[in-house]
Nucleic acid binder design. Sequence first.
DNA 1: CGCGATTTTGATCAATGTCAAAGGTGGTGG
DNA 2: CCACCACCTTTGACATTGATCAAAATCGCG
Lengths: 270, 270
Amino acid sequence: MLITPKEERPVVTPLTCAICKERERTVCAAVPAANLSGLEGCRLGDRNFSAGDILFEQGQTADNLYIIKKGWAILYTLTHHGERQILNFALPGGMLGFHPDLETPIPYSLQALTPLTVCVFPQKNLLEFFRQSPDAALRMAAITVSEAEFAFQHLTNVGRHSAREAVANLLLELCMRVKERIPATGDTIELPLRQEHLADALGLTIAHVNRTLRKLRENGALLFQNQVLRILNKDLLIQEAGADPAEMLIKIRDGHQRRQERLEKALMGK
Amino acid sequence: MLITPKEERPVVTPLTCAICKERERTVCAAVPAANLSGLEGCRLGDRNFSAGDILFEQGQTADNLYIIKKGWAILYTLTHHGERQILNFALPGGMLGFHPDLETPIPYSLQALTPLTVCVFPQKNLLEFFRQSPDAALRMAAITVSEAEFAFQHLTNVGRHSAREAVANLLLELCMRVKERIPATGDTIELPLRQEHLADALGLTIAHVNRTLRKLRENGALLFQNQVLRILNKDLLIQEAGADPAEMLIKIRDGHQRRQERLEKALMGK
DNA sequence: CGCGATTTTGATCAATGTCAAAGGTGGTGG
DNA sequence: CCACCACCTTTGACATTGATCAAAATCGCG
């Protein structure tokens, strides 16, 4: 749980961008594959963290942007009363900490939820890079737009759904995000979360999340124990989420693939 | 409250960008003042809307980006149950509807809260422009980052604050935002909001917002009636907001001015 | 086996929602 | 200028959700 000074973190084998599995889903996709050297020059290399390590903390200046290559992390802020609001769960391919205003402190923290491998880009290098590559800058803007829209969705879930709907929604969403990355996943999904994380993401209490999960279990919608989510009845769960079933099913099928293509089309100029 | 088809909206005097009062706080600031013709070419012109008009609706594709020149608007989404979650209040200088993925529907709506004047940029033109102007693209990314961080703050306010803290926080924030634009503003501030808006922004009921406002009034923190917010005791209000007074005071003083300068420095390359 | 960290559960309480009605307020037509 | 109406605000009584606090029950692990 302690902050690990960056200096002490070993820079592990700086694998080349050419074989980076996350390249296609990050800002790096804006760089032609034949021309990755500029990108290589920007990055500091890969780093490993342990579960619980804090990569950066709210109030600090944002020195680096991190791209998650392996593992899960959480973005969160701490209240004045010491309560935690989880803003988002970060999966491989996530880009965290982009904050062009280098002198203003960043208003949230990033903590590893599992052992974590990240690719580190100093913001300064990145900004310089963007200044020379409008495609990259534009793609960064596009990615940030998705982040903001994600936050909006989360806000709606917290502000306008009952605990039951909110929990169902959150778990469905996480399920979708995992499936986007590992399409082979069935209805049994490993989530490195405790009930505490659901509570802090939804503005609820652990006790209440527990009771809510029980209700969802008792009516046969899902099972969540030992970090494993098992969706027993997807239609029912979607109904519990209070979502329009048709709309939601489209969302679920419409994975990363298609969205990626569209974005490509838009960004690379029709 | 009806949707006004874009075609019926008159394009009013397309004033030149050179005299646009909002230029400095939008993406347009990335364009050298001597070279505004490219920007002029992108924009469709100004349009006026009446209070209640909907500029775009969740589910539609995002044809245009709007820059508010005059008036207030709200960003919101509607729940499946028909409840409204207000995502943000938009003031002059706000850039709404940027959504580079042109084929994916936009997940929120934009509605005028007062008579509104906006500058309209078709997204296509804008994306083309960004592809030629990395500075503009980068600035757009930076603006989007602030939007996302704003949403995070709002999320925390909704998820982890009591009704009393949340209302105090929201009103303080709106007060700050107005003062940024009109520095002369004293402690009496006109907000074009009904209690319903506070409720829908905070995930509360109108009745409860009303009771909460009464409590804040009764202990002498503020007065909010007839669209006028009067801050009677700022220290008390900050305390009610549950914020660290010192931290908050810095935030309040640290208006747009300084933030703008910092951003400038970062974006224009040290 | 024993310990620390979760999860689960119960009893009770406080915050917030619901429903319904009574006041206010401003605008509009007569 | 008045009466009326639509729309807000305010208030009350009551229902419900979710929070608190505390104690068991489990689980992972050394």
